[in-house]
Nucleic acid binder design. Structure first.
Lengths: 179, 179
DNA sequence: GAACTCATGTAAGGGGTTACATGATTTA
DNA sequence: TAAATCATGTAACCCCTTACATGAGTTC
């Protein structure tokens, strides 16, 4: 139930419309809390009902475009929520189930998924490294920037770890049985 | 949609009842595909409908206990599924949203969640290390065991990485601003 | 026989995904 | 004016979570 707070965070960084939010999610906060535009529109409606954000019809823009911005009550709510604690989200990864299935079945073709996943993780890693170079390198960082960088580093570490798992598994599968 | 295949995998390792499955999930496959007993009962019903498992009333046991075992069609299905590929599951972690919120709000108490999470990850890490000592140390491992060990190592690496993130964030929050 | 545990379910509700709908504006 | 894009939604479905229900054996 963190989507509303992810939206408040993003809108605090910059007020914008629902579709703009959806686009920004695709390359920022959405890396660790993905959301479709359908979800975002519905949630923005709730946030407005709750009095946490306000919308104004965008001028000079096409159609029914609405710009949302965070109200003081929304900022208070985000601050309150940020101060609460939760358990880590449960891990749920089909690849690990496949590896266990391969263990019990004998050779069953899990290498295909491993290669697919390895390619995805390497691609994501490359994307995160681009962002690292572009936004966080070669200068002194503010407190806020260092926090944002830490979040990116978490993504880097996660992708690297998953890629390493795929590599180790592929190596294991191609190795001969020990004597 | 991997719960049916997680159940097939677990039932191949050893046939058992729904409640036994639920208990085994709590300390094995459930580490990377959690499931409640309600989910498990419902899914076992579907698996039986599909002809992938068969149940027999348990003798010498109390009540309505049923023992499930995998049928050849179920084994075929598990083999088929193991050979397919999927994208990595989307990452969705409220802690990372909180860190971004703390970045945009200024101090908002995220340290509380960081300490809570650190404690959980350390506890999980200790549990995985116990399992490692108990099941995978001090002897030659078979192919199946090495695959299972790899899955456990993935859990170890994930928990260690998350704990490290919490430690780094706590350090950053307690450090003074640079000149 | 009352309380507890074992064992198997049912029901309600929420978040997320996928597919579809609709109107307005720009572009060819 | 036809097609493409912008912008905002609705609806159906699925998985998961939480709370509750039920019967059968065991223990005090």
């Amino acid at each position: 139930m963190s989507l509303p707070h992810a939206l408040l965070t993003s809108l605090l960084e910059r007020p914008c419309s629902g579709l703009d939010l959806a686009r920004r999610f695709d390359r920022s906060i959405g890396f660790f809390w993905p959301a479709s535009h359908q979800q975002i529109y519905k949630e923005l409606g709730r946030l407005e009902q709750a009095g946490w954000v306000a919308s104004t019809a965008a001028e000079g823009a096409r159609g029914r475009k609405k710009i949302y911005q965070v109200l003081p009550a929304g900022r208070d709510e985000l601050r309150r929520w940020t101060g609460t604690a939760e358990d880590p989200p449960p891990l749920r990864d089909a690849l690990l189930v496949r590896l266990r299935a391969e263990a019990v079945l004998g050779p069953a073709g899990v290498a295909g998924d491993l290669r697919h996943r390895l390619e995805r993780h390497r691609r994501q890693l490359a994307l995160y490294r681009e962002i690292e170079q572009r936004d966080f390198s070669g200068r002194e960082l503010s407190r806020a920037e260092r926090l944002q960088y830490l979040v990116l580093q978490s993504g880097l570490a996660t992708e690297a770890q998953q890629a390493a798992l795929c590599e180790q598994a592929l190596e294991l599968l191609s190795a001969p049985e020990p004597d």
